[in-house]
């Protein structure tokens, strides 16, 4: 009965739409499979923990060479192109019945996923504690390593 829980440790360092989904999809699914889950959010990954930010994340077509945009790649750097790509991506996602990032975050919180904000990158990027959701904790590398020790799966995104 008291079988040891499997453990998933994730480092999330990105926050464009394509980078924000994998940590939250894996975290919620693992939690639904009775894993203990922790996400360490560092650099741009901190955006996952910002209040009211998740549904505003974008994607840029610049450098995303395989994004099927009806424009030449170089145009991707022009003003407005990021918003256009973001709009397209959101409409594809909606059409495919993909969950919103906020819904995945709500399920993560509800299922007890441990959310850790990286203190060092908060300082670097001048992010204040009160800009982040109450449900996360603020800590450093040692805290993540202590959590990830003995994890069955560790992923860097």
């Amino acid at each position: 009965m008291s079988e040891k829980k499997k453990k998933l440790a994730i480092i999330a360092s990105k926050a464009d739409i394509a980078g924000a989904y994998p940590p939250l999809i894996l975290a919620t699914t693992a939690a639904s499979m009775d894993y203990e889950v922790g996400i360490f959010c560092t650099f741009f990954g901190l955006n996952l923990l910002k209040k009211k930010k998740l549904n505003k994340l974008k994607i840029t077509p610049a450098g995303e060479t395989n994004m099927p945009m009806p424009i030449p790649q170089i145009i991707g750097i022009l003003p407005g192109m990021t918003d256009m790509a973001t709009m397209m991506m959101r409409s594809w996602m909606k059409g495919a019945g993909v969950a919103k990032l906020q819904e995945l975050m709500d399920i993560s919180i509800e299922s007890g996923v441990r959310l850790i904000a990286c203190q060092m990158t908060m300082d670097v990027m001048k992010i204040k504690r009160k800009q982040l959701i109450d449900e996360c904790e603020v800590a450093g590398a040692a805290t993540f390593l202590e959590f990830a020790t003995g994890a069955d799966i560790t992923i860097y995104i």
Binding site: I25, T28, T29, S32, G97, V98, A99
Partner: peptide
């Protein structure tokens, strides 16, 4: 129906 991964699993849970 009409839900993508991982929603069918999450809703089932």
């Amino acid at each position: 129906k009409n839900l993508s991964c991982p929603l069918p699993i999450l809703r089932t849970k």
